[in-house]
Design a protein around this nucleic acid. Structure first.
Lengths: 353, 353
DNA sequence: TTGTACGCGTTATCAG
DNA sequence: CTGATAACGCGTACAA
């Protein structure tokens, strides 16, 4: 009889250990342990006896003791920029779905797009002895030393969405290049040529790939890339202000863009809100296609043609890869980067007026 | 030298235990342990020796071993309806801020407004031996037996926002009554009399309190309460459809409301989106005041007068209460329900056209 | 001031 | 088939 963590020591409570069962049934601890684990070297009647007793008194093996013994915590750490972001929420849902069914615990932390928070969170998680790490880098992150050290030490790490090229491990990303290519092509096909590109920080894998897709689509349509049509608005607390400035600058150009391609979820939402605030209608006044997983933005502007990232799928894939790494006894030599397809939801109303 | 959880067993890695230090320094384990804990019964030079060595080799006490020894996991469970909800995100931020600085870990789980998920999550968390539980009930929850059992057993529980009257423990809520009263009064003072009330499930503490505030405000202004102005749209996956129906019904009334008071964050957002979709302008076509912590809704419709709940504060308060419960050795007799003030953000444009 | 011995709850090994 | 023993890493009476 023990007092489990979190249960007031002073209260009598039937939290029983394997020892209690042994004593009560006149068996040895190891016999009980084996019986509970359904070992072949235990007679079926003893098993039944033990298992029945355990069920009666709803015995629960102490996970902490198990962890100590087995050298693993059965919990994995997740680091995301922000949980109040539909995309990351979806990823987390995906992670949870697989984790729980595999007996794993998920510890979620947020960086709020701050590098120092990222370092601190990773530190904290590792200190808490997680079995593996799932991480999407924050926009501020320039180098990944804090992760390289751990990776060299053998901590299983899987990157998702915002990945690093400086660490060789499993990664899951969306097909950013194609997503951006499709979005831009759609605008071009609809008849727009002056298409601005609003994106986040320049030094993110996601940005690079989407920018490339945008440029290639223009090139394939023989439209010249105009550098003053490309605006970088790094995610963060002051995103709205940055986007506002970007819009001002774009609209003040000699040939202001007739269409916008917003390359990040948060930016799409912000742009949508700001256009609405300024009384600019989409697509009558200005066309808009953007990456977005935000249902609200969707409901809000049924004319938004959106590039949708497979959040749930990404979460599932990421943790599946991680669990594979964890189960692998020897260091993996070959790492994989899975690319999941994006989906372009075209709305009729995004056709040129 | 041990291989820590999550680090590949096969890789040599300098994760050292208290034992390694002892061996290396020619001391006993307990001396090292005491030295690290800065015990007074250890000479300062030995302490320094040990502590230096520990720092050099960046020794980390194994939290799992500590947990097992001390009978507490230093982690607390959080159950929320959904993390992709600005309000709950803010609460979580508040929780994290206090938890981390107190050496506690936070395990977040979501119910997605489903009762069975709530039961399962709580089960899972307790099984993971958390030291305490922070929970906001989901809309489906009618009875709280799953929590009562644990509470009787002495598990420290603190409710926030969506609380239960059937369990005596610490609780933190917003001043729902006053928030609703203020919102309704604002509309009345602005000149509206026909004010509809769209809210979530009837059997939630939050709903009851806000409904009471709404009714009292009407009563104080000598306006009769009209039951067909009150619509219940329980949160869930099909919320949008329910709200759509509610709006249809309201607008089809003989005297359709000129103003709406939406009593839940999600409902405010949904209504806003649906009005926008229907081309109804706020407040020119219909006035709207609602509970909302959603920045997007805010940016999106600068004319939205919103009742803001103190999410961050609520999270902080909740976990502070929980930590107090955890630290208390003996069962608490007196429980407290903290009520945090809401704030009404009035926008000039919400004045009657 | 330092070291020894034990216990937390579980599992694995080996002996009976 | 069952049971004793050791071990996971740490902390703490108690003994030296």
């Amino acid at each position: 009889m023990r007092t489990i963590a979190g249960l007031n020591k002073c209260m009598h409570f039937e939290v029983i250990t394997i020892r209690d069962i042994a004593r009560e049934l006149g068996l040895s601890v190891s016999t009980v342990s084996k019986a509970l684990r359904d070992s072949h070297e235990i007679s079926s009647k003893t098993k039944l006896l033990v298992q029945d007793y355990a069920r009666e008194h709803n015995y629960r093996p102490n996970p902490i003791a198990q962890s100590l013994k087995q050298g693993q915590s059965k919990s994995i750490g997740v680091v995301v920029p922000a949980i109040n972001n539909q995309f990351f929420s979806q990823v987390i849902d995906g992670i949870e779905s697989v984790a729980y069914s595999n007996g794993y615990n998920v510890i979620i932390t947020q960086t709020h797009e701050r590098y120092d928070m990222e370092v601190q969170n990773v530190e904290h998680l590792v200190h808490r002895s997680i079995d593996g790490l799932l991480i999407s880098l924050c926009t501020e992150t320039q180098n990944v030393e804090h992760l390289q050290k751990l990776h060299r030490q053998g901590l299983p790490i899987v990157f998702f969405d915002r990945v690093s090229n400086d660490i060789e491990t499993h990664k899951v990303i969306a097909d950013n290049y194609k997503g951006a290519y499709d979005a831009t092509s759609h605008l071009l096909e609809t008849g727009y040529k002056d298409i601005a590109h609003i994106t986040s920080t320049a030094n993110a894998s996601v940005t690079t790939e989407r920018l490339a897709g945008y440029k290639q689509a223009l090139a394939d349509a023989d439209v010249a890339v105009q550098n003053d049509y490309i605006k970088f608005c790094p995610n963060g607390t002051d995103l709205t202000a940055k986007v506002e400035t970007a819009l001002d600058e774009l609209l003040a150009l000699n040939t202001p863009p007739q269409a916008l391609f917003t390359a990040w979820d948060t930016i799409t939402t912000t742009v949508l809100a700001l256009l609405h605030k300024r009384g600019l209608r989409v697509p009558q006044d200005i066309a808009l296609v953007g990456f977005s997983n935000t249902t609200l933005a969707d409901i809000l502007n049924p004319s938004l043609t959106a590039v949708h990232q497979p959040g749930f799928e990404m979460g599932k894939t990421a943790i599946e890869m991680l669990l594979a790494l964890i189960k692998a006894k020897y260091p993996i030599e070959e790492f994989e980067t899975k690319v999941l397809p994006t989906q372009l939801f075209v709305r009729a109303s995004s056709v040129k007026a």
